[in-house]
Design a protein around this nucleic acid. Structure first.
Lengths: 245, 245
DNA sequence: CGGCGAGTTGAAGAGCTTCAAGCCTGGTGG
DNA sequence: CCACCAGGCTTGAAGCTCTTCAACTCGCCG
């Protein structure tokens, strides 16, 4: 049930009562399955539905004519895209899976019905949008002001928090199904330099990598080094259900 | 009337009938005037109203503890901030005027009334949000993949288009009341390098600067050089009222 | 077994920063 | 009315971060 992933996610943004939860669990849509590295949305394309991610990771990205690629954001279980469809805009960027992915495809009419059904839900979706925009802003700050070392630390910590919210990850680390090339494209670096910095972070005892997992050996020091301040998550407004800080 | 600037802006997003226009012109709020370089919103602050810019420029930005600053976006006449207030989030970034500025301060309750008054208006505001997010994404792409030369060209062309929409600017240029330091902070560069590149663009016959104005001497070549593709403005959806392309 | 994608490492070089200093303009006070 | 100051702009020189080019390894799948 993709609805469950969405419910879990939304519960961070609003105190839903039984009725609201019912509404979400009964969202009408088509369950879809995609292979690893499947193009879900291509820039310039007209979109015809909203997709709610149930399981798996995807990336939003944009490519320039000469092939340079910028990863804008990572989509995790519980994330939705693209609400733009509600105003019938065409995609100005692409979306592609990085793992196999299952999701729920919801038609705009159904989605609009949802929004009118419950004021609380409308608010909750607003919150998700506000947070999504905050992630974009943070991405700008990170890539614009920070060194490669800081960017990588900051990026991993942000992802880690987000993964914890989805219910995955452990006390001291999480599985990162991103290649170093994807990380590099997210941070505006070359894969080569990304690799060097990652290895350096290991040598400095800040983290360990093991078979696709990132394990933080000293999260505090990493957060300080990269000036990671998660207030842009806006979780404080919800009494920090994450149980951190 | 700040309402007029807003009306002009919104008219790019929706075909408003007389009634809709009435609704906008009668928005209830306090007209405010601010001096150059006035802090309007401070990161971490609770916001209590939406501000519609009537006249003047402002910047959204974020500063790190060590003083590094990243400019996220430029606010022009007709722009609004911060709709976040509708869900009572606290500011995760700051806003500050770069010229003297007049605006209309609207209380959230009044704004919500607006949204319920007309479905067309609701859609129009959604469009503004969609576009705003597209600007953020483009900022990420620009700063993440492009060279200083490309970034500066791209940034100026984007601003130029936006200024044209507000009704200012001429055939071949516009007034840019931003210091080179602000431009540098927007593009993740040092003011020194920004200056060198601007001069180089002049020497290459791509633009001229004159007393705060930017004049494009060869807009086509500049757009090619910086791979400027304005489809992210989503203006095509409105039959390109801008009259370009 | 062969090939491909991902990761790793070295060496050379480019782009941008840092430090330093000088200029120009507009505003302020003696 | 002129002297002075501050903020913004400009230029040079040295140096560092990150890129580019190149080559090699490892694990996985056909």
């Amino acid at each position: 049930m993709a609805q469950k992933a969405l419910l879990r996610r939304i519960s961070f943004y609003a105190d839903l009562d039984d009725v609201d939860q019912q509404v979400i669990m009964q969202i009408d849509g088509r369950e879809q399955h995609y292979e690893k590295n499947t193009e879900l949305v291509d820039a310039g394309q007209e979109m015809d539905s909203v997709l709610i991610v149930k399981q798996g990771w995807a990336i939003r990205y944009k490519t320039l004519e000469d092939g340079r690629r910028q990863v804008l954001n990572v989509l995790l279980p519980g994330d939705m895209f693209d609400l733009q469809v509600l105003v019938a805009a065409e995609a100005d960027h692409s979306v592609k899976t990085v793992t196999s992915l299952t999701g729920l495809s919801v038609r705009p009419s159904e989605f609009r019905r949802l929004l009118t059904e419950s004021g609380k839900l409308t608010l909750a979706f607003w919150w998700m949008q506000v947070q999504e925009e905050a992630f974009l802003r943070e991405q700008i700050v990170r890539n614009g002001t920070q060194s490669a070392r800081e960017r990588i630390g900051h990026f991993l910590l942000e992802l880690y928090r987000r993964v914890l919210i989805t219910g995955a990850g452990t006390d001291d680390g999480f599985r990162v199904p991103l290649t170093q090339t994807v990380i590099a494209d997210a941070l505006g670096l070359t894969p080569i330099h990304t690799n060097r910095v990652l290895r350096q972070l290991e040598r400095d005892g800040l983290l360990e990598r093991d078979n696709g997992w990132i394990l933080f050996k000293d999260e505090t020091r990493l957060a300080e080094m990269s000036q990671f301040d998660p207030s842009y998550f806006h979780l404080d407004a919800f009494r920090m259900r994450l149980g951190r800080e």
